[in-house]
Design a protein around this nucleic acid. Sequence first.
DNA 1: CTAATCGTTCGCAAATTTACGAACAATTTT
DNA 2: AAAATTGTTCGTAAATTTGCGAACGATTAG
Lengths: 108, 108
Amino acid sequence: MNKNKKYTEQQEKLARFAKALGHPARIAILDFLAKRDTCFFGGINDELPIAKATVSQHLKELKNAGLIQGEIEGPKVKYCINRENWALAKRAFGEFFCNCQSKKGNCC
Amino acid sequence: MNKNKKYTEQQEKLARFAKALGHPARIAILDFLAKRDTCFFGGINDELPIAKATVSQHLKELKNAGLIQGEIEGPKVKYCINRENWALAKRAFGEFFCNCQSKKGNCC
DNA sequence: CTAATCGTTCGCAAATTTACGAACAATTTT
DNA sequence: AAAATTGTTCGTAAATTTGCGAACGATTAG
């Protein structure tokens, strides 16, 4: 093994975002939330073919990744996209995909 | 449970790409390959803090996701970005992140 | 106060992921 | 032909992920 090499912070960060996006249920949640300003848990749950306990777990992961945030409102919980981190993720993926060069120049 | 809802093909596709990007070693491999036209296994292995068996596994996953391709050349194996699928992934992420709307309009 | 609603957490099972060294096949060098 | 190089595959262990139902706490409705 080599192995004083390490991953960069940027690589770790992008991988964390990507991992959070690496399940169709979480993509579906984000697709859904991205189309509106907010949504209660129930509304999200109704969109998914999985048990509410599992939906709750996926929401927790998205929250840990910083891509969404939740707020208690009466007996319900209101979720929304975290637009600041959304922008960070968008930028990180954008830069990643634009680093691809070839003999003929940049792919972008 | 609901649950005649299903994930769309687009959601499944994006999740597959994201999952492939969901590990810093694979990001590092792609970062590295994206900067050159091709690279042998050994060159990639030298960049990573993990055993060659593990590097080989990560390369296999990236190949399965369609993001890279390998070609045997003498006793060595030459890897490169699969630029066609790279462009597809780039587009899929771009569209995903641009679907985010708010009261103030599109985030993009 | 009691019952119903809402969503999280717990506990568990099954599947997948990550990692490694050893063994291996294929090629090249000596 | 024998030895060295290259990278994959095998077998295994540990950790993580995904999924569910049941139980739970918090709030609201009756």
